[in-house]
Design a protein around this nucleic acid. Structure first.
Length: 244
DNA sequence: AAACGGGGTTTGCGCGAGGT
DNA sequence: ACCTCGCGCAAACCCCGTTT
């Protein structure tokens, strides 16, 4: 069917999204527009298409966010949404480290370092399989497989008799700011998230332009240190308040 | 219209693979 | 054969978009 390359698709999508209102546009509409332009059906490549759309949107939103925060927030959140992996070690040339790593990966006791790569891997994987699609349906299959497995496990949930509870549910001591907000001095992470969600709802702190974002009131601002944040990623901002 | 899945973030554990 | 490293998956939160 469509002999259009992913790159061409991306280009078209970028063109469409460039003029579109991200708050109202949907992947479906984008697809329809691109289909109109290219005069062919992209239904069979829907997944791939959606993925590219999401990527392009994310790119654009990231740019917007950066502008936004820079503009509004003088002490703008250093890491913000844009770059999770800017943790470069300034002291050691990365090249060298990489080389060493390749040669003798063992003797480098820097456990904290894999955090970023780890995450990156994860996202890359998803992107990977989606964008690549070179291997054909095979890789596609894998992509589907993973979430499915995840869901399956999720559904099976606690039934797993031998399932250990990991660090997810353990209670953390909270920083003074956060404990003031929560009314508790120690809570598990998910409880904190739950309460923050409750606060957002209760005080109606949703960003009217995009409900995936919340705008902090003064109290919340003390904790989040940022005026507007993406609610899905709130843990990133809460992290410093978990003192262990 | 209702239901479902994806999305992002966190830390810790377990397993597999590779090197010595 | 043992040790170390790296990667993937686990639970929890809820909104939004897509599909049926």
């Amino acid at each position: 069917m469509s002999d259009i390359s992913s790159e061409d698709l991306r280009r078209e999508i970028q063109a469409v999204l460039k003029d579109a209102d991200l708050a109202t546009i949907s992947a479906k509409r984008v697809r329809e527009q691109v289909e109109g332009k290219l005069n062919c059906s992209l239904l069979s490549r829907k997944k791939e298409f959606d993925k590219i759309v999401m990527e392009v949107i994310n790119e654009q939103q990231d740019e917007e966010d950066e502008d936004d925060d820079e503009g509004k927030d003088p002490d703008a959140d250093p890491d913000d949404e844009s770059e999770p992996s800017e943790e470069e070690d300034p002291s050691s040339s990365e090249e060298e480290a990489a080389k060493k790593k390749k040669q003798s990966p063992k003797k480098r006791p820097q456990p904290t370092k894999h955090k970023a790569p780890k995450k990156k891997r994860k996202t890359l994987n998803a992107d990977d399989s989606g964008t690549e699609s070179d291997a054909g349906s095979d890789s596609d299959y894998e992509v589907v497989k993973k979430p499915a497995a995840k869901k399956k496990a999720k559904a099976a949930g606690g039934t797993g008799s031998g399932r250990k509870s990991t660090g997810f549910t353990r209670a953390y001591n909270l920083s003074p700011e956060l404990s003031a907000l929560m009314g508790e001095s120690s809570l598990p992470r998910h409880e904190v998230v739950k309460k923050v969600w409750a606060i957002i709802k209760e005080r109606d702190l949703y960003d009217p332009k995009n409900k995936q974002f919340a705008i902090c009131d003064d109290e919340l601002m003390k904790v989040m240190k940022i005026r507007r944040f993406r609610t899905f990623g709130m843990l990133k901002h809460l992290k410093p308040h978990f003192l262990d």
